[in-house]
Design a protein around this nucleic acid. Structure first.
Lengths: 157, 157
DNA sequence: TCCTAACGTTAGGGAGACAAACGTTAAATC
DNA sequence: GATTTAACGTTTGTCTCCCTAACGTTAGGA
């Protein structure tokens, strides 16, 4: 029995030039690589990209409601529920009702969460290094600059 | 009754700097914009990105088997089935058993498909223009160059 | 001949992004 | 002060993309 149903990877020479240089396709493929790499680096610590984004946002902006975390991370509020449930269960975050507004939860980074986050920072940095390996430092800076211009433009339509 | 359950878009000022400049995140967000834009341009012609990739590959490389199309486009062969079914039903492609190898189908671009593809080319070009609008021509070229380097590197691990 | 592998196909899983609706609670409007 | 409007957290479900597993069929190498 064949253990892997292998069928070849992309044949680089056979990909039409039109597709090979199409910016939208290139960006999509690069995003796929980036997702795989950062997922791999975070998974060994039992974390996800969304969890990391929430933790960084809490460290940077202090305690916040779930709605604020959604606005700051871009994670949909209906997905934020599970993210915070996992972080709470791991003890990296505490979730308590806001006494001044009983609709809200106040989410706070715990000491354990802060320590855990420092580990994740290193892993995320390593992921960026892997991802950008083929580029020189000035090229990396230029890529970031160009992508930020695109994101800034399209975020606001 | 509220017709839309609006909860604000990303608050740019509140996104932590760490996240705002993280290459993997920037690439992922840009890919999201790119997908939305190219989907929007193709959808009005009843086409998808995968259909476009298959059609371009057939025009560029001539008739091919489904496995060859998979290798050249990066579309998984199990997804290629539905792509070709849609293209066949629309009359843009013909699928016939290969007389020299009865396991294979020979997929051929029809005249109608070629005409349709020219329309899609224009739509895809328009999508790239929208996507890259905030960049100057040399910046666009540089972005493509950098992304191709990343893709070339990570495609081969 | 037997075994291996490629082909097209079906079924399904997992993740990301999102929409809709609901009970609760605050704030705005009258 | 009463009523309407809206925000909050949550549950449920949808859609697309990417991928795995398995199957019957057919070709080719041992």
């Amino acid at each position: 029995m064949p253990e892997h149903d292998r069928h070849g990877p992309i044949d680089p020479a056979a990909v039409p030039a039109r597709l090979r240089s199409l910016p939208s396709r290139l960006i999509g493929r690069t995003a796929l690589h980036a997702d795989r790499i950062s997922h791999a680096h975070l998974a060994t610590a039992g974390a996800t990209r969304w969890q990391y984004a929430a933790l960084v946002t809490l460290r940077d902006g202090g305690p916040a409601s779930q709605a604020q975390l959604s606005d700051r991370t871009g994670i949909h509020r209906s997905d934020m529920v599970a993210v915070l449930a996992a972080l709470t269960e791991a003890g990296h975050v505490e979730r308590a009702p806001d006494p001044t507004d009983r609709r809200r939860n106040v989410v706070t980074l715990t000491t354990a969460g802060r320590t855990h986050l420092r580990d994740l920072d290193r892993r995320v940095d390593a992921a960026q290094t892997d991802l950008l390996a083929p580029l020189t430092p000035p090229e990396r800076a230029e890529l970031i600059r160009l992508l930020r211009r695109l994101d800034d433009h399209h975020r606001t339509h």
